[in-house]
Each structure stands twice: as structure tokens, then as C-alpha cells.
Amino acid sequence: MIKKALTLLIAILIAFWFLTPIVLIVLSSLTPSAEYYDPHRILPRSLTLNHLRSLFVTLGGWRATLNSIQVAGISIGISFLFGLPAAYALTRFVFRGKNSIRLAILLTRSFPVLIIGIPLLTLYMRIGISDTLLGVALAHTSMVLPFVVLISSSIIGGISVEYEEAGMIFGLSRFASFMRITMPLVLPGLAASAIFAFIMSWNEVFVAAILTVGNRTLPAHILNAAMTAPDYFKFAAGTIMAVPAMIFIFFTRKYLMSLWGISLK
């Protein structure tokens, strides 16, 4: 009984520790400015959507959000287009040097991707894609692509090769068999990893801030605007950064857990 109560108490403390900052920033973003600056008022008497609205409408937040979505979309697209064949070969073929290739791709994950921003800027100026969303997307792809290769190869590897071989025996080519037999089976897992890839790009701030001036993604926009904006806009910005990511996590939590190798049974 005591043990049970203690467990519950610890669980509540942990939940409190992780949830409080999230609850507070959402609350702050909804607090009227007068009440925020009133030191004697801890909880606001009324809530307002004004900060969020002006961040979106007058401070360019909406455009930055669309930019972020485009950047993430392009890098996910390229990553899967380039990454799936490699992931397929890693799981379905046996060949010399396979482990070295896998290790090399794994090692790029330990590469500090943020440093590529500076040299890429000079390159982009030369080839005329500086301050474009495509430029940011390509930079983000170098971070997302190795992730997609590794995670997809583990997802595809989780589907027995015999399903695909059965497809080939019963009349499909290798490619058709992958698309029509294996693809439907791996699609949920790939979708979950695409969502995670989306969050990687959505959250990346350093490279995006360096590569763009006019076409800023949301975090890059916030990074620059936050320095000068009043506090309540910062909270509104923090909230719109956090909410989509949290919604994604919520809807894909089961798949994400299995991607991380956590069993829920």
C-alpha cells in the first residue's frame, strides 16, 4: 500500500516536471500583457488569442510556418527518394562492403550538421540559391537522409523477405514485388519515421538561420525576432513551435516507441 502510494507520488512528480514548462508557455502565450506584467497576478483572470494572432498575421509567423513546412516536405521527399533504394539494398542484398557502408552512414549521424551552414552559404551564393527554401531543404536533407536510410532499413528488415520472394515467384518483378507486397506492410512505419524526420527539420534552427534572410523558417524567424520582440510574442512563438511537434508525437507515439525499440507489452 505504501509502496503503491510512493510509486504514484513519484509518477506525479515526474509528470509535473515534464509537463509544467509546456503548460506554462501555452498559458503565457494566452495571458493578456497587462496581467503578464502584473507581479501580483500569478494566474491570469482572462485569456486572449491576440498574441498568437499578431504573431501569425503581422509578425510574419504564418509565412514562416509555411516556409518550414515546405522545407521539411522537400527534405523528406529527397530523403526517401534517395534513401529507400539504399535501405532496400542494405536489407535485401548480401555483398562485399555492406557493413562498411552501413557504418559510414551511421557515422555521418555523429557529424555536427550545424557546421555545414557556413560553407554552404558561400556555395549557394555562387550557384544562386542563397536565401531560398530549397537551399535550407538541401542542408536539412544531409541531416535527415542518413536517419531515413538507417530507420527504413530496420523497418524493411522487419518484414520477412519471403513475402517479397513469394511475390517474385508468383509473377512480379523485383521492383513490383517491393511496391505491391512489402510497401503496404512497411508504410505505417515509414510514415512514422517521415513524421519524425519532419520534426527534425521543423526544429532545426542554426543552419536555417544562417542560410536565410528573407525566407526564414519558423525557428529561424523566431531566433531573429525574439531578441527584439516583447516577451508575450516570445511565448506565442514558443507555443506554435511546440504544438505541432507535440501533436505529431501524440498520434505516432506507438510507432515511435517501436522505432526506438521500446516494447509496450
Partner: peptide
């Protein structure tokens, strides 16, 4: 040709 696989490979979907 046709084959019966060790794991049966009956397509789950």
C-alpha cells in the same frame, strides 16, 4: 514455378 516457403509467406495484408 511456385513455392511453399518455410515461413509460408502468406501475405498478411
Amino acid at each position: 514455378v511456385s513455392m511453399v516457403f518455410q515461413s509460408y509467406a502468406v501475405w498478411p495484408h
